[in-house]
């Protein structure tokens, strides 16, 4: 019997070592320790062993059983490990690049616009929007621009034929022409006509000028304007807003200054200069960044506000110009080419 035990163990060892799959293992396990297995059969013969030999034989059998059981466990462990290894495949080279597309990028004009809107939101300004196709009233008349003002000429402003019908842009004056807005100030008029002061809005948006395209001009570009209407709004409040905006955007070293200027819709009117020599590609001490002023009483009159009660300021600037300044971009056309080598720089 001892010989038989040894023979089983001797046979089991190479057989188990050669097993590859869990099914083969289960079959092999059944052959040895299953109900009809060789080892089980041997155990059953214990009854035939003479009584005096039983303790010794029992010990032998138990030892062999433990040995076989350990071999089986080890085999199963080995197969389970091999199964996991097979699921995983070979180890990855972590330096290989991901073949997936990405990442996406936000356009620099959007980045600058949104940053300005966030800065202005802290000062209580919410974003207003309006149509890009406008009528002469909203773009010019209500903004104190007389009918024969050069800015209104077909030379400078894009118009549509008198027969054009834009269903969701209402005309204020019968017979007035549709045009592409030349500034986002039309949004100020729409906002003031719709509501009552106090008003604090920022209106970023696309505007159009009939102009040659070059490094600093483009047929359409973007503006960002602020309008504040309340009681007792002063020139100094306007200066405070501009100081705040540009210090937030460009750093505390940034200074602003006013130069007297002329706009039909503000009085007094100023051009705004920035001193921000820490920015890339800024060589001059002062650079012009926008126009502003106190809302002209004639504009209040046009929207039905009492100019003796209400006062306000307005400020406007070009977003492209601002983005060029912030990022040191030297040609406006980059914004409209959408070369991804450009776009990826600002994400």
């Amino acid at each position: 019997m001892q010989d038989t035990l040894n023979a089983i163990l001797a046979k089991a060892q190479p057989e188990l070592a050669a097993l590859k799959t869990r099914a083969d293992f289960e079959a092999a396990k059944a052959r040895y320790v299953g109900p009809h297995g060789e080892f089980t059969a041997l155990m059953k013969q214990m009854g035939t062993v003479p009584k005096d030999q039983r303790p010794a034989m029992g010990k032998l059998v138990n030892e062999a059983k433990a040995q076989l059981s350990a071999q089986l466990d080890a085999t199963l462990e080995r197969i389970a490990a091999a199964e996991i290894a097979a699921q995983l495949g070979p180890a990855v080279d972590p330096t290989l690049p991901s073949p997936d597309v990405g990442p996406g990028t936000t356009h620099p004009l959007t980045l600058v616009r949104e940053e300005m809107c966030r800065i202005l939101r802290k000062a209580g300004f919410t974003v207003a929007d309006g149509p890009e196709v406008e009528t002469e009233y909203y773009c010019f008349d209500a903004l104190n621009t007389p009918p024969d003002h050069p800015a209104r000429a077909e030379q400078d402003t894009f118009y549509f034929p008198e027969t054009a019908r834009f269903a969701n842009v209402a005309k204020k004056i019968p017979g007035e022409k549709y045009l592409l807005r030349t500034h986002t100030s039309s949004v100020q008029i729409r906002t003031m006509l719709k509501g009552e002061p106090p008003i604090r809005i920022v209106s970023p948006g696309r505007v159009y000028r009939r102009d040659t395209s070059d490094a600093t001009h483009s047929a359409n570009f973007h503006q960002l304007e602020c309008l504040y209407v309340d009681k007792n709004v002063t020139v100094r409040d306007l200066k405070a807003l501009l100081d705040y905006i540009f210090a937030s955007l460009l750093g505390k070293d940034t200074k602003t200054r006013f130069r007297p200027h002329y706009f039909g819709y503000t009085e007094p009117s100023f051009e705004v200069d920035l001193s921000a020599k820490h920015l890339p590609k800024v060589k001059k001490e002062w650079i012009e960044i926008g126009g502003c002023g106190m809302v002209d009483p004639s504009v209040f009159e046009a929207v039905g506000y009492d100019a003796n009660v209400w006062s306000g300021y307005a400020f406007g600037m070009g977003l492209e110009r601002l983005a060029m300044l912030v990022y040191g971009i030297d040609d406006i056309r980059y914004f409209y080419q959408n070369d991804v080598r450009f776009l990826k720089q600002f994400a």
């Binding site: 106090p198 604090r200 809005i201 405070a240 100081d243 200054r257 100023f270």
Partner: peptide, 23 residues
């Protein structure tokens, strides 16, 4: 116009409005 003094902060205003739906 250069001498317009800086103000310490932007004055508060209670304006109950939200960004435009398109925005």
């Amino acid at each position: 116009t250069e001498k317009v003094p800086a103000a310490p902060a932007v004055g508060p205003a209670l304006v109950d409005s939200e960004d435009a739906p398109t925005v």
